[in-house]
Simulated assay, not measured.
Amino acid sequence: MSVRRKPRFKRASIKTFSFFLIFSAVVWVLVQFSKTYTQLIEIPVNYINAPLDKSISDDRPDHVDLQLQDNGFNIYYYKIFNPQLQVDLSKAKQNNGELVYTLQNHLSDIEQQLKIDFENSLIVQEEIVVPFQFKKEKMLKVEPRIEVNYAVGFSAEESVRLKPDSVKVSGPEKIIDSINTVYTRSLKLNKVNMDLNGEVDIDTSGLGQLSFYDNSVGYYQKVEKFTEGSAEIAVEVTNVPAGLNLAYFPKTVIVYYQVNLKQFESVSAADFRVICNYREVKKGDDYMIAKIVEKPDFINNIRLNERRIQFVIKR
């Protein structure tokens, strides 16, 4: 008895069928997308150039409605990529605690941003109304965070100065009243051998609700050639109880200091005073701590070769 086999489709027939099926689907999609549709699309709004003296409310509109009449391809583009509309608040009018941005007055700019033609499309809203509150203004002291490492033989008599040393800011009253000082961004300068004169940004991190009228300040410092000097100074002991026979050593210490080369000859041992305060001696200690209590104002990097002064009490 013969077995009847099931007919099989030829592979060539399946490929031909698949091709025409896919081709038909593509043609159908192209035809459908080529048709003109009217679609309402939400366009996100991004606000720029807000007035520095105004705090913009969080209740501001976050989008506008665009009624777009176009082919399916362009509508699909807007739905997928969803371009933003930049609203320049410096061009808005102020009215009773609100900034009013009239869209009809800026159609050419909107057309360029969104790449649309308003002959067949329109924005449903006539204007964007943004509530605001006036900010409080205040001058804040700026402190430098500038680390200067000088080249060998160079230094400065004064610290780094800022110009201006204060900046004007505006913001919510609660924040403004809680802050008096801001800082520059950290800056490290190495091997400095000439006068400093530059600009550094203000560190506004964590202060996003404040508006700064200036975002940077200048810094400067006079850098000069310095040299090291030394002087031998007698150690004085103060507040020794009456009748206490105190012997201490060393009797003198060496003071090392850095001084402007031009003023080197102006420094003498008589300009220094080194003392030990016996009242500051802790119980059981057999030494005192030497301190420099007098020195010329124009020297720096001052140090002693010996700070511990040993002592014994004679009976």
Rank of each mutant, 00 (worst) to 15 (best):
E173F: 02
K174T: 11
K174F: 10
I176T: 04
I176W: 02
I176P: 01
D177G: 03
S178M: 07
N180S: 11
N180P: 03
N180V: 04
V182A: 01
V182R: 00
Y183S: 09
Y183D: 03
T184F: 02
T184R: 01
R185S: 09
S186Q: 12
S186C: 06
L187P: 06
L187N: 03
K188G: 03
K188N: 13
L189M: 07
L189C: 03
K191Q: 11
V192D: 05
V192H: 06
N193A: 13
M194F: 14
M194R: 15
D195K: 04
L196G: 03
N197L: 11
N197E: 09
N197A: 11
G198Y: 06
G198P: 02
E199L: 12
I202F: 05
T204D: 10
G206C: 06
G206E: 05
L207A: 09
L207M: 14
G208D: 15
G208I: 12
Q209E: 12
Q209N: 13
Q209L: 09
L210G: 05
S211D: 07
S211L: 06
Y213V: 10
D214Q: 11
D214V: 12
N215E: 14
S216E: 09
S216V: 07
S216Y: 08
V217P: 01
V217Y: 01
V217K: 01
Y219S: 01
Y219F: 14
Y219C: 04
K222L: 10
V223C: 04
E224Q: 12
K225C: 00
T227L: 04
E228A: 00
E228V: 08
G229Q: 00
G229H: 05
S230A: 12
A231V: 07
E232C: 11
E232N: 14
E232V: 15
I233C: 01
I233V: 13
I233Q: 00
E236L: 09
V237T: 02
T238D: 01
N239F: 02
A242K: 09
L244N: 05
N245V: 11
N245G: 02
N245D: 14
L246S: 00
Y248K: 05
P250F: 04
K251N: 11
K251E: 10
T252G: 02
V253D: 00
V255Y: 01
Y256Q: 15
Q258G: 08
Q258V: 14
Q258C: 09
V259Q: 03
N260K: 11
K262A: 13
K262S: 12
Q263G: 08
F264T: 06
E265K: 15
S266D: 15
V267M: 04
